[in-house]
């Protein structure tokens, strides 16, 4: 057994040396050898790694038969079990870029191994895989091969050996959108004063945090008849059964919980309390309904003002929880609520 790390490589029909546009319809195939750029790539790995085979697929075939192509490719990758997957570089070739991107994303998602490719910044495939793959920035044409392969090989070696990856500028990849925490020479307040002086003098300055762009969600249509509606209770105020059985974090939540409240009239203490670390918990712990008002909802149900309270209530901690996690929780909880036939949700925050 070789102690070299194993790379599986993907190219299109052109770089796979099968042919040009006239061969763009060929079906995917796998060869246990290095083909096209994989040869030059391997030579840059300094004998630390080896390319164990090359997948080749026609650009048109891939784009017209995505599912079949992906399924073939994934089967090969699962069987060959490489340590790392490399595709392209695709430069500014659109269909090739999309194929590289789709495969890179699928490999990263399903196999959890590092993936590397190369693209021109305007390649339409970029957005599909920039978060999942390290995409080395290339020129817009194959003339940039000589420059792209060493960067792709260098980052591949680092990823395969688990070494720390440098900045996008140092490594030559297109920023993935990751906010990486670093220790720098100057303290924050000094950087702020320096930024201020530049701004006051009309000199160029660079913000350290470009503002996020938010998705706008269309509100659902109004409920016409509340007396027939099922209403669910959901909170980011961290109300959980005593003992916090699912270990929901006190800040920066990584999960949510759901608890059957069909047999309860209220979220009484001490059966429930808050695990939320971001507000004064004293009053919430006295009467948890202050944060998640199951008591009032149940009264409404008895009065017939609403049809029914959903059997489960949903909860997590909002403080310090990333927007990405919040979106994930919301999507998962929303799906459950929809399947349970819930018409409306009382969502409380703190």
């Amino acid at each position: 057994m070789s102690d070299k790390f194993k790379v599986l490589y993907y190219v299109n029909q052109f770089f796979g040396q099968i042919g040009g546009e006239d061969k763009a319809g060929i079906e995917p195939e796998f060869r246990k050898e290095k083909v096209g750029p994989a040869i030059g790539f391997e030579s840059k790995l300094k004998s630390e790694g080896e390319v164990i085979g090359t997948l080749i697929c026609g650009d048109n075939y891939f784009n017209e038969h995505k599912e079949e192509s992906l399924s073939f490719v994934m089967d090969v990758i699962k069987k060959e079990a490489p340590d790392i997957f490399v595709a392209g570089p695709a430069f500014n070739a659109g269909r090739y870029g999309v194929a590289c991107a789709e495969i890179c994303k699928a490999v990263a998602d399903e196999m959890g191994i590092p993936v590397v490719t190369g693209m021109y910044i305007e390649n339409p495939g970029l957005d599909t895989c920039r978060k999942e793959a390290y995409v080395i920035e290339t020129s817009d044409s194959a003339g940039g091969m000589r420059k792209a392969l060493p960067s792709m090989a260098k980052i591949t070696c680092k990823l395969a050996k688990g070494l720390e990856i440098g900045s996008p500028e140092e490594e030559g990849f297109i920023a993935r959108g990751m906010r990486k925490s670093l220790i720098v020479e100057k303290r924050g307040s000094l950087r702020a004063v320096e930024m201020l002086l530049k701004r006051l003098k009309g000199e160029e300055f660079e913000t350290e945090m470009p503002m996020p762009v938010f998705n706008i969600v269309e509100p659902a249509a109004a409920i016409k008849d509340l007396s027939k509606a099922t209403i669910a209770l959901c909170t980011s105020g961290g109300i959980v059964p005593a003992g916090n059985p699912d270990h929901i974090q006190s800040a920066s939540a990584q999960k949510w919980g759901k608890y059957d409240v069909s047999g309860r009239d209220a979220l009484n203490a001490p059966d429930f309390y808050t695990t939320h670390g971001g507000y004064d918990p004293v009053y919430a712990n006295e009467i948890p309904d202050r944060v998640a008002p199951l008591d009032i909802l149940k009264e409404f149900e008895k009065e017939g003002y609403i049809g029914k309270v959903n059997n489960y209530f949903y909860t997590t901690t909002g403080t310090g929880t990333s927007v990405a996690n919040a979106v994930k929780f919301g999507t998962e909880i929303g799906k459950e609520l929809k399947e349970a036939g819930v018409d409306g949700v009382i969502l409380t925050s703190t």
Partner: peptide, 13 residues
Amino acid sequence: SEIGFHNVTCRLY
């Protein structure tokens, strides 16, 4: 520290 008392920052990677 958001009064910039320490030397940590974030960069886009």
